[in-house]
Simulated scan of single mutants.
Amino acid sequence: MHAHTATRPVALVTGAGRTSNIAAATARTLAAHGWDVAFTYYRPYDARMPWGAEEGAARALHAAITEYGARALGVEADLADPQAPARLMDTVADRLGPATALVLAHCESVDSGLLDTTPESFDRHFAVNTRAAWLLIREYALRLKAPHGAGRIIALTSDHTAHNLPYGASKGALDRITLAAATELAHLGVSANALNPGPVDTGWMSAEHARQLRSATPLGRLGTPQDCAHLIEFLCSARGGWVNGQLITSNGGLA
């Protein structure tokens, strides 16, 4: 049982549209360690990406969470909508209770560079990756009921910007917002950290890209969603509460 409270605290994990991704691994891991878990997904995003939408992913993740004796709640949310974060937080609070941990693992990620990024793509990346993260953090803080010192914010970030301009730039802004929360939400006892997991194999890499990344990593393998989920679970736990205001790189030593 989680150390923060006698009953299970609630975690909200965004971006769990596929059962193989970091958000889904995090949701399952938190459930296994005493959390009730709400998660978001958005099928239209996956449908327009090369991997496609995974039929039944939300149902499968819901079932996996409840297998640990946890309550689960899946909410489809278009986080490009500036009204979505408040609606989402209200839904989570009504169904499970206010969130103690907020894990921001959603993203818009469509490759383009300095010369070919469109204003529309740039704006959508910032709406989803940056504005939605700020609004979710704000709405989380406004509803927080957890004991002082128990609150957690963890945002998944990236330093991949070349040829991935709107994604990388919007993630850089996300870093700053998250780290600001460590100071601005100090009165609530919330720790806030940004986590850069490096390249994680969730099915998007070509065989050649995967080979190059493995050869550039001292441990000779790719990161897995579970690698990231273990670290997030630690940061969410009472054991991880002293880690605050950090941009953490956990990538196996990738050169």
Rank of each mutant, 00 (worst) to 15 (best):
H2L: 07
A3S: 13
H4E: 07
T5V: 09
P9F: 00
P9A: 02
A11R: 01
L12I: 05
T14H: 03
A16K: 11
R18L: 13
T19W: 06
S20V: 15
A23F: 06
T26K: 04
R28I: 10
T29I: 01
L30M: 00
W35V: 00
D36I: 08
F39D: 06
T40H: 07
T40V: 05
Y41V: 02
Y42R: 07
R43I: 02
D46S: 13
E55M: 15
E55R: 15
G56V: 06
G56T: 08
A63C: 09
Y68P: 05
R71Y: 09
L73N: 08
L73R: 10
L73F: 02
D78C: 05
D78G: 05
D78I: 06
L79P: 11
L79Q: 05
D81V: 11
P82Q: 07
P82D: 13
L88Y: 09
M89R: 02
T91E: 12
R95M: 13
G97E: 10
T100V: 02
T100Q: 12
L102H: 03
L104E: 08
A105I: 03
H106G: 03
C107Q: 15
C107M: 13
E108V: 06
S109G: 15
S112A: 15
G113T: 07
L115H: 15
D116T: 09
T118R: 08
T118M: 09
T118C: 05
P119V: 14
F122A: 10
R124A: 07
H125R: 02
F126S: 03
V128Y: 00
A133I: 03
A133L: 06
L135S: 04
I137H: 01
Y140R: 00
R143V: 11
A146R: 03
A150C: 01
A150S: 01
G151K: 01
R152W: 04
A155P: 00
A155V: 10
L156W: 04
T157K: 00
T157V: 09
S158H: 06
D159Y: 06
D159R: 08
H160F: 15
T161R: 15
A162W: 12
N164L: 11
L165P: 08
L165Y: 06
P166Q: 13
P166M: 11
G172Y: 04
A173K: 02
D175H: 09
D175C: 10
R176Y: 12
E184Q: 13
L188T: 04
V190L: 01
A194P: 04
L195C: 08
P197H: 03
P197S: 04
G198S: 02
V200M: 07
W204G: 07
S206Q: 14
A207R: 12
E208R: 14
E208Q: 14
A210Y: 02
R211V: 00
R214C: 10
S215L: 13
A216K: 13
T217H: 04
T217W: 04
L219I: 10
L219V: 05
L222A: 10
L222Q: 09
D227F: 05
D227P: 05
D227N: 13
C228G: 03
C228H: 03
L231H: 09
S237D: 10
A238V: 11
G241R: 09
G241M: 00
V243K: 11
V243M: 15
N244F: 03
S250D: 09
G252S: 08
G253Y: 10
A255H: 11
